[in-house]
Nucleic acid binder design. Structure first.
Length: 279
DNA sequence: GTCCTTTCCTGACAGC
DNA sequence: TGCTGTCAGGAAAGGA
């Protein structure tokens, strides 16, 4: 399930392989993947002959900067891009095909069909609802203790749910939320607006630290993630709590538990992450 | 504004 | 073996 580090790895690969390429035709095999424009034919007409100038990322969104439009793409759970020869067989999970002037094809695959793409004008991109509400990127230039404290002040829901809220910090998903809270020694069910100063400090530091390390490792491969080159991420060997249910905590040997918070599977060490403040 | 629930989807797996 | 039910989960939409 791609979160910021995985999307960044995909972005780097796509930009390396696609910069300067022209899209000669788009084939849509599953209409619902295309969120905008509503008319699939409009999507196909507008993207035809667009040149891929660069690829950016904002939170978990990929932004293909084309000649006249920006293609906003979200991989959700299992979306992935592959560049394949045009005569290679099309797998059953391929939903969108972009034919390129190189003779190759950029193919979008997605087992669960959760991913979405929107083609919008440069004028509309600044006001796009998916992007406009995103919080700061989890990098030290954008995310400070003060900014995060301010954002959490009014949040009465759990810190786990709050970290998954893209309007608070952009790019954190279920895996890194668990890792961040474990690192910061904060119980996932703590209410966001009850964190102490030192907890806010640890939380900010943990967000920056864990995301940075995961980006450098090329992301985490759980189940199916791979980048454009078919390479797996390396961060899974660094996971301290996610997916370690029943195993001893790396810090204190207490058995890691899995509970449900905000309807999400949530891993924690009940000893390191106490529900009372200053765990 | 904030929070909560539902929806979208398929594959894996448990249980019978 | 084959069926049914449950679970996994990011974002958006709609309701409270």
């Amino acid at each position: 399930m791609p979160e910021l580090p995985e999307v960044e790895s995909v972005r780097e690969g796509l930009e390396r392989l696609l910069k300067g390429r022209r899209i000669t035709e788009a084939i849509v095999l599953w209409d619902r993947i295309i969120a905008e424009p509503k008319e699939i034919n409009q999507f196909k007409n507008e993207i035809k002959d667009q040149i891929i100038h660069s690829i950016d990322r904002r939170g978990k969104f990929l932004l293909f900067n084309l000649t006249d439009f920006v293609l906003i793409s979200h991989l959700r759970m299992e979306g992935k891009y592959r560049i394949e020869k045009s005569n290679s067989s099309i797998s059953k999970h391929t939903h969108v095909i972009f034919k390129l002037d190189s003779g190759e094809e950029l193919r979008y695959l997605d087992v669960r069909k959760f991913g979405r793409m929107s083609l919008v004008s440069y004028k509309a991109i600044a006001k796009h609802p998916s992007l406009i509400k995103l919080g700061p990127e989890p990098i030290k230039e954008a995310l400070t203790i003060e900014a995060l404290s301010q954002a959490l002040k009014k949040r009465k829901k759990t810190i786990k749910a709050t970290l998954l809220d893209q309007s608070v910090v952009a790019g954190i998903g279920n895996i890194y939320a668990d890792e961040i809270l474990f690192n910061a020694k904060i119980h996932p069910s703590r209410k966001a607006n009850t964190l102490t100063k030192s907890e806010l400090s640890r939380l900010t530091y943990s967000i920056l630290e864990i995301i940075d390390k995961a980006v450098k490792a090329g992301g985490t491969t759980i189940r199916t993630y791979e980048n454009v080159f078919g390479e797996l991420g390396n961060y899974q060997s660094n996971l301290k709590v996610y997916g370690r249910t029943g195993l001893p905590c790396v810090r204190c040997q207490t058995i890691i538990e899995k509970i449900k918070v905000a309807q999400r599977g949530t891993h924690l060490c009940p000893n390191c992450q106490k529900l009372t403040s200053e765990g």
